[in-house]
């Protein structure tokens, strides 16, 4: 019996020794829902983007305009979390461009584009091929959005609520021609993850 106890104790000590690290992994389908923790995750982003894209494409007020030029405006994160709003707007923009219903002007890289104009007209580039200021497409609409959250936590229960509101504004009339929101509520229970 003593030998057995010594064996079990030895195995316990041996197995507890050494740090643990992430060394085993697999590629996963990014659209599979995985809630490992209570923060904003890629699934929330996908759900928001899917809702906004389907709503925009089906919107009657946009249908009247033939492939309008849109610029992405301010995306506000009003939650307490650090959330990459650019990733969210990029995902929406990608799907909208791929739908063929919208064109987007690149507002984020305006400075780079202006510098490139200067370079192309500095004499280094064939003048016949050089692009000049004055030929850009004017944006007709601006896409803006806000993400806000609310957290309720009591004991082992936690409810996390997100509300994403996006809107499309006509740059000429400043009229909001489309808006929609996506509400997400996630319920969590605390679980022990160690000793």
């Amino acid at each position: 019996m003593r030998n057995l106890i010594i064996l079990i104790t030895s195995l316990t000590v041996i197995s507890c020794a050494g740090p643990r690290t992430f060394t085993k992994g697999t590629y996963e389908d990014p659209e599979t829902i995985a809630l490992l923790d209570d923060r904003f995750n890629e699934n929330d982003m996908q759900l928001i983007a899917k809702k906004m894209v389907s709503s925009l494409v089906a919107s009657p007020s946009v249908e009247n305009r033939a492939t309008p030029a849109v610029m992405v405006g301010k995306m506000r994160n009003r939650t307490a979390e650090h959330i990459d709003m650019n990733a969210l707007s990029d995902k929406i923009r990608t799907s909208l461009i791929q739908s063929g219903r919208f064109r987007f002007v690149n507002a984020l890289n305006r400075k780079s584009i202006a510098r490139e104009y200067e370079y192309q007209n500095s004499g280094y580039v064939d003048p016949a091929q050089a692009h000049r200021p004055g030929s850009q497409t004017a944006a007709q609409l601006i896409l803006t959005g806000t993400l806000s959250s609310n957290v309720q936590e009591v004991g082992k229960e936690k409810l996390v609520y997100y509300k994403a509101t996006f809107q499309l504004t006509d740059l000429g009339s400043s009229e909001i021609i489309w808006t929609d929101e996506k509400e997400i509520r996630k319920a969590y229970k605390k679980r022990r993850i160690g000793i």
Partner: peptide, 21 residues
């Protein structure tokens, strides 16, 4: 069940968990 985000709207309700754990 884990569920997916590319289904119909609202199909994510009740889905989640940790499929890797």
């Amino acid at each position: 069940e884990s569920g997916r985000t590319d289904g119909a709207e609202g199909s994510e309700y009740g889905k989640g968990g940790n499929p890797f754990g």
